[in-house]
Design a protein around this nucleic acid. Structure first.
Lengths: 197, 197
DNA sequence: ACAAGATGTAACCAATTTGTAACAGAATTA
DNA sequence: TAATTCTGTTACAAATTGGTTACATCTTGT
């Protein structure tokens, strides 16, 4: 069992105390201590003492057989909800930015859409971050160069244009008709999180 | 009741569905939605349907009268424990960290896989510990040097790269294609416990 | 409609960054 | 002290990036 657990992603363990082998309670205690894994205990014995021991051991919930499957589902949902809040205490904080269906994680340097990762080079990442942090306002090539590299302006520098193009290919539904990263002719670029037509 | 709640610090609400006044279930629903408050429901009716409705509504636990006071205490403890972890996720002193099939024991300074020990030098151990303690975020060479040795930065210091390489040979299935200890080009390294492709 | 300037973009490749083997001084152990 | 292990440095190979260039396309003003 330990081997299985170490090789797989497990969200929650439902422990049947009536199963043979290592004592269910000690398994549970170990799982909780080492991996902080959510646990629901099933038991045929409905005696109160057992239930109390199970909960004190650290299980998150306790159900006695026979049980209603719908109740088990409800309890699983309840435990997982609590648990996800534990895993991502700071998910809602500053280091995750979103636009349209995309998510940019500033800590991981990772862009994803529908849970699927989209690889960005470090230049693309930097540019996207700047656009997200200054959305809905026109950014000139000068200020973009300034923010990305601290450059002074060179009048024939096209590097921003090229990088914008590369970014568009990764985030725009149709790079020809940008909805997030639009050109403001004669001035620069503007980014809008919701994606204008 | 609302007046009381807004003026006081409340850790947990025990809701008696049999009390008069506003319907207990809707009170509960409101508390959870507005304050994300932990809730335990008491009810004289032991019918399954009620218990299910209560849990689905978002209560953290459910107890039917008559109940054993000790069991109520245990359940309160269980619910509060979960909640406090939300507030202080790193409060407990875990000295065993896991990732993929590996286990790192901080006390013994020992890395093992499937019960088999993998010897680490002290430099490798330190680096791995730091990666595990700061997983899922990019760590620059600078900050890694800082954390491992308190170094000031020397721009041509490659010691981190070399140590990362050595660590990879011990933990990566294929050091050429790291899944745990990945490079973030132009920025540094990032460690993910579950091992990304 | 035309010219002039601005923008999009494919392709090339130099500069940078990273991987790693080999070496040697440092640290540890016997 | 001698032997052994560890770890930083160096050097070079490999990989990756992103700026430059060149040209097509688009916008604006006349």
């Amino acid at each position: 069992m330990d081997r299985y657990l170490s090789g797989h992603e497990v969200d929650l363990v439902i422990l049947d105390l009536m199963l043979p082998g290592e004592d269910g309670l000690s398994i549970g205690r170990r799982l909780r201590q080492q991996k902080n894994m959510p646990i629901i205990i099933l038991s045929a014995r409905g005696e109160e003492l057992d239930r109390i021991v199970g909960l004190e051991m650290g299980a998150d919930d306790y159900l006695t057989k026979p049980f209603n499957p719908r109740e088990l589902l409800a309890r699983i949902r309840s435990v997982l909800r609590r648990c996800n809040e534990v895993k991502q205490p700071t998910a809602s904080e500053e280091h995750i930015l979103t636009f349209g269906p995309f998510t940019l994680d500033l800590q991981k340097h990772e862009l994803s859409r529908d849970g699927q990762e989209i690889t960005l080079t470090s230049g693309e990442f930097t540019l996207l971050r700047i656009f997200l942090e200054h959305s809905n306002r026109v950014l000139t090539r000068d200020s973009l160069l300034e923010m990305t590299k601290g450059y002074e302006h060179s009048p024939l520098d096209r590097s921003i244009d090229v990088c914008v193009g590369r970014l568009r290919r990764k985030i725009e539904p149709d790079p020809t008709q940008p909805v997030y990263l639009r050109t403001v002719w004669g001035s620069g670029y503007i980014f809008s999180r919701q994606g204008k037509a």
